[in-house]
Design a protein around this nucleic acid. Structure first.
Lengths: 360, 360
DNA sequence: ATGAAAGCGCTAACAT
DNA sequence: ATGTTAGCGCTTTCAT
């Protein structure tokens, strides 16, 4: 076994309490005792065991993170933002993936709760009605949603989320296409039941179309990265009369896949058809043409989520030395539903519709 | 406080030992007692506390992961592979980032060791001489390197690593360019002191050039994603006579940035200059032209690394019920230096050199 | 099959 | 300023 506080105490000829004190508030130990202890620590290569500390303290200074996948850059960036902020605040990160399977969400959270994480950051398939979130709430574990955007009203307004305004952002994107002269705009989306964001973005599409007096089309839902399997998509693209002049995709990976498939069909982007994405993944800006997209600040989403979570955690366990004149034991809840600004990235993948269409 | 094994025992009218037994080997508890306990567990919503278990058992069934960044898809995919495999083997993952700063490596590992992870998977700046790895070894914590490729001989051959053969892979890539008729090939690389892989890939470049009797050029080292700052690069590209006909980049993000910059300079890829990457990030295959690259199986690297690590962990703490006739207490070390196969992805970013050059 | 009790490493009263 | 001690949740002898 590795050296414990006990061996250190023994070697330094003091009690374990003194060693513990030195580790926690060094001020309360005399200089020469501290000196002796430090030497023993160095000699033994002692490293405090968080497990012991956590068991005793009842908290772990660890947060759990649950995301659908790391294959999508968006979540990787978010996790990056979480980790950076966590390190700055002296928290550790334990993380899991769900592969977009709702049933994995609860298993993932169960595991994290077993480790006694102090809080959880997650992106779920559907935040609207979600047994996992209910569990977290019942167990009084602070949690913050990322990308999931909670409703403004309803029974869950007290929950925390960090996202862009998906509906408004999608509306902006589609309005941009309309402004360019597009009339026939098709939305391509990931499965709605795996992503409530996708649904919100479709509503944004509807908003923009209706505001312009255009006839919205039903969204085409596709499995991720496999457009070729969507036969309605294939048919639509094959017929020049039926074909939309612009595609609005619910995420950038989908947009990129769509562009690849369009090329395979012999179609030019944006010459024959424009493509707009959503997410604003960094590589999109390196390509030619640049992928037009709605840029979400993914790393910031992670950063804000972590800070919000830590705030909630430390509010739940009020800081010890708070003085008797502490203002309010149940201080007012800070803002919970964080809506971060999105930016429309214009890019060469979008242009006015081909002449034949703009005349019609 | 959350319900503990104690409350469960009390409610079920048994001792805590019996509850513990039911949780660990259910066979040793009578059916009716089990029934009672299960009811109590359900009623209280009891969930075993890993902290207590870990403290007692001296292991955590948790592995630590240290990667430079998650902004590079390569590491995100690797982490994805690690997490998947970990979940399959019932391990949890705690992870940290170093931002490519060698000094962060030791801090990250210190933190993980504080949490008493059972082992560590890491990608370091330089695996050749690395204080953090020495520490891990001194503390007898199993670890596996990813992407870092250990030397075949030397003082560290007993260490474990999972990677492609960087030098051979780079050589293949450059040989491919040479086969296409390129003579003047420039390597663009991330900082060697932040990535020993980059250095190994440069050696591969040298191998290929020398094998073809061509004059190798010194590599141009650039900060990640900011080619514009490299003045020697700018100068070289501006002069049509000095300009190479092909660029070999030590990673795909660099290759993509380079292509963007070349476009800004008015150069065509591959018309004026070919660009070859390294990593084989998935988006590279979605672009037009497709980014030619050396594909590393990043997710598999993570998968293999985790399985190798777990093997080492469970070898260190030999399984309890092993029987007295256990073959060898110190069984022979399995293969440690995993070299996974790479694949050369041909793509439109690479073509024969422009006519003027191929004549020379 | 079950219980009693010790102890993993640590912190926080409570003494002194 | 320092020591003594109880106990966080759990597993595991050792009895019964």
């Amino acid at each position: 076994m590795r050296p414990s506080i006990k061996q250190v105490a023994h070697l330094a000829g003091v009690s374990i309490a003194t060693v513990s004190r030195l580790l926690n508030k060094p001020g309360s130990v005399s200089a020469e005792t501290a000196e002796k202890i430090h030497r023993s620590i160095a000699e033994l290569g002692f490293r405090p065991n968080f497990t012991g500390r956590n068991l005793r303290a009842g908290n772990s200074r660890t947060v759990g993170v649950v995301v659908p996948t790391l294959s999508n850059t968006v979540f990787a960036q978010c996790l990056q933002g979480i980790e950076l902020a966590a390190r700055a605040l002296d928290y550790s990160v334990m993380f899991t993936t769900t592969e977009y399977l709702p049933e994995e969400e609860s298993a993932a959270v169960e595991l994290l709760l077993g480790h006694r994480v102090d809080g959880v950051i997650l992106t779920v398939a559907d935040a609207g009605s979600n047994a996992t979130l209910d569990l977290l709430e019942r167990e009084r574990i602070p949690f913050v949603l990322t990308y999931n955007q909670l409703a403004t009203s309803g029974p869950t307004t007290h929950r925390a989320s960090v996202s862009v305004d998906n509906r408004a952002a999608a509306c902006d994107a589609v309005a941009h296409l309309i402004g360019l002269g597009h009339r026939r705009i098709q939305m391509l989306s990931g499965r709605f039941n795996a992503s409530d964001r996708a649904m919100q973005r479709y509503y944004g599409y509807l908003d923009a179309m209706q505001a312009a007096g255009l006839a919205p089309l039903p969204a085409i839902e596709v499995e991720r990265h496999t457009l070729t399997a969507a036969t309605d998509y294939q048919q639509m693209m094959a017929d020049p009369l039926q074909r939309p002049t612009a595609l609005f995709c619910s995420n950038d990976l989908l947009a990129l896949s769509a562009m690849r498939d369009l090329r395979a069909l012999g179609l030019q982007v944006p010459g024959d058809i424009s493509v707009m994405g959503f997410d604003g993944i960094p590589v999109g800006a390196l390509m030619a043409p640049v992928l037009a997209s709605v840029v979400q600040p993914s790393e910031r989403i992670g950063d804000v989520a972590l800070r919000t979570l830590v705030e909630a955690i430390e509010r739940a366990v009020p800081a010890a030395a708070d003085g008797p004149s502490s203002q309010s034991p149940q201080s007012a809840q800070p803002a919970l539903r964080h809506i971060l600004p999105h930016v429309l990235r214009e890019g060469g993948s979008v242009a006015p519709p081909p002449a034949a269409h703009s005349l019609s």
